[in-house]
């Protein structure tokens, strides 16, 4: 077997949104990017340059308009809605600035959510969710609902959830954007632990100091990677 495919490969990746009144918004205009397995990359760039769009396409949350996007060797372009859902379930994990936890579920149930859709039995779900919560230091808060957790704690739950399905690629869109400096540091430390475990990380941030601490920085401008 040849060496495994890189975690992420983009060639001439384009994403155009339909704008109001029949207009078009070109959010990505030919992104070329390769991320090796186990690499941690920070993406920076001005607001509106397409960072979130890039993560959404890479995470199979959104479809590319043109160009090539491969995740773990899997070409994303031909995947239908269901196939993209299955990819999100198993291969990639998302962490969002707004945490995006489900308010009616406990921390543990939020973590177990991907497993539920994967058809894992309840007892096994519980066990794995408990393990993951312990990994992010929240074992004691398993039965808490998101509203009774601090922002940092919510983001830990979100991180545990992103890893529940066995993701090889973690996509974090400004995961520290809603957190104070100290809490942000804790989350970044956790992310580094995850990377140390072999997971590939693509992290979007406005924080240039934070970006500087990563293996590599990719600057986006106007939907393209800046040289």
């Amino acid at each position: 077997m040849s060496s495994p495919a890189p975690a992420i490969e983009c060639v001439g990746l384009e994403k155009t949104y339909a704008g109001p009144g029949g207009g078009q918004v070109a959010a990505l205009r030919g992104v070329d990017l390769a991320v090796a397995r186990g690499e941690a990359v920070a993406i920076t760039g001005p607001s509106g340059c397409g960072k979130t769009t890039l993560l959404n396409v890479l995470g199979a949350l959104d479809r590319p308009t043109a160009g090539v996007a491969r995740v773990l060797g899997q070409d994303l372009a031909p995947l239908d809605t269901r196939a993209r859902a299955l990819l999100r379930r198993t291969a990639v994990g998302f962490v969002f600035q707004q945490f995006h936890l489900i308010p009616t579920l406990t921390a543990e149930e939020n973590v177990a959510l991907p497993l539920r859709y994967a058809g894992v039995a309840p007892a096994e779900r519980r066990r794995r969710a408990t393990d993951l919560l312990a990994r992010v230091g929240l074992a004691a808060r398993a039965d808490h609902h998101p509203t009774s957790l601090s922002g940092g704690e919510q983001q830990r739950v979100a991180l545990a959830r992103a890893l529940a399905g066995g993701a090889q690629v973690l996509l974090a869109d400004e995961p520290t954007g809603n957190l104070d400096r100290a809490t942000a540091g804790e989350i970044v430390a956790l992310l580094r632990e995850v990377v140390a475990g072999g997971v590939t990380l693509v992290l979007v941030t406005h924080d240039l100091d934070l970006a500087g601490t990563f293996d590599r920085q990719v600057k986006l401008r106007d939907g393209r990677v800046e040289a």
């Binding site: 809605t81 859902a85 379930r89 859709y117 529940a164």
Partner: peptide, 16 residues
């Protein structure tokens, strides 16, 4: 809607 988006993001298929 937001919850549906979250569920979808973590791997729920449209059918689920």
């Amino acid at each position: 809607r937001r919850e549906i988006g979250i569920k979808s993001a973590v791997g729920a298929t449209p059918g689920q």
